[in-house]
């Protein structure tokens, strides 16, 4: 009997350990990024690092200012949201409220497919379709630009926005809509003036999730944005926070390498902020 108890306790302990591994991983990532990221910021100076306008890591007199990367990431994400959210949101309203069951299932499948396509495939198609297209339309020397990155990101965040918004809209109580219809509102008016406000925290969560996806994307953006450390302009060749880390890591050393870790730390802080906002919206929904 005693043996059995000890055995059960051991099993309990094993499962507890497995459960704590996720927590351990989060701690590991945080600690490693902080340890690796702090030294360069110390050496360069926090203000000079965050607000310096030039990044010349390989020149004889290197300067490490990541303001161009930060602004590019913010502009790129904002652009993707401005294009992607309206399309995703309207698609979600149609799918959730108007579409017949069969169309809903078919478009739903297409959207999950869009979510499953690897980011390098987006990058490849962007490289060979978008980049030459932008060069031709706007008569530029090179089409690899912030605009190309924005379009690719807008497409890549569509599935998350559609899926989360559809779930939120599906959960709106039928009574709300029935009451609005009974008062004489037409179906379309009901969807936009009753159902959407009722699902607003879920839709907000979808937008925040999209922001997270867009700011964290590296490979697709690296392939279409031209990857030069310019201050952002719509037709400039630009570099994002993610691509700044990825593009120099393979050949960097010394302070340059440490500065790359610091960039990752800045990116990580952005993501943590976004996660906290996401949790705020999702928890708010549960509290209703």
């Amino acid at each position: 009997m005693k043996n059995k108890k000890a055995f059960e306790n051991m099993i309990h302990g094993i499962f507890l350990m497995l459960g704590l591994i996720a927590v351990g991983c989060v701690l590991l990532i945080t600690v490693y990024l902080v340890i690796a990221g702090i030294p360069a910021i110390r050496e360069i100076g926090l203000f000079k690092f965050l607000f310096g306008k030039t990044w010349e890591s390989t020149s004889a007199n290197p300067s490490y200012g990541i303001l161009p990367f930060i602004l590019t990431s913010i502009y790129g994400t904002a652009g993707a949201i401005i294009i992607g959210v309206p399309i995703g949101f309207l698609t979600a309203v149609y799918l959730s409220k108007i579409a017949p069951q069969k169309i809903k299932a078919a478009v739903g499948t297409a959207v999950s497919l869009l979510a499953g396509i690897p980011s390098v495939v987006y990058g490849l198609v962007g490289m060979l379709v978008l980049v030459p297209g932008i060069r031709e339309i706007f008569h530029l020397a090179d089409g690899a630009s912030l605009l190309a990155a924005i379009i690719v990101l807008a497409i890549m965040i569509l599935p998350s926005i559609i899926k989360v918004s559809v779930t939120a809209l599906d959960a709106v109580p039928k009574e709300y809509e029935d009451a609005s219809l009974a008062l004489g509102a037409t179906p379309v008016e009901t969807y936009f003036k009753v159902s959407v406000p009722a699902a607003k925290s879920g839709i907000a969560a979808a937008v925040v999730l999209g922001i997270g996806r867009a700011i964290g994307e590296a490979m697709a953006v690296m392939m279409v944005s031209g990857n030069v450390a310019n201050m952002p302009g719509l037709f400039q060749s630009v570099r994002f926070l993610t691509t700044a880390v990825a593009s120099e890591m393979s050949y960097s050393s010394g302070l340059q390498r440490q500065a790359l870790f610091s960039i990752a730390l800045v990116l990580f802080l952005f993501i943590m902020l976004i996660n906290a906002t996401l949790n705020f919206f999702l928890k708010g929904k549960k509290g209703d």
């Binding site: 989060v26 990532i29 990024l33 964290g216 990116l267 993501i271």
Partner: peptide
Amino acid sequence: IEYAAETLSGIPSIIYGL
């Protein structure tokens, strides 16, 4: 534990790589 799992699913892959 659940919060940790949620956090993990939000971290971009480039940071995992690093």
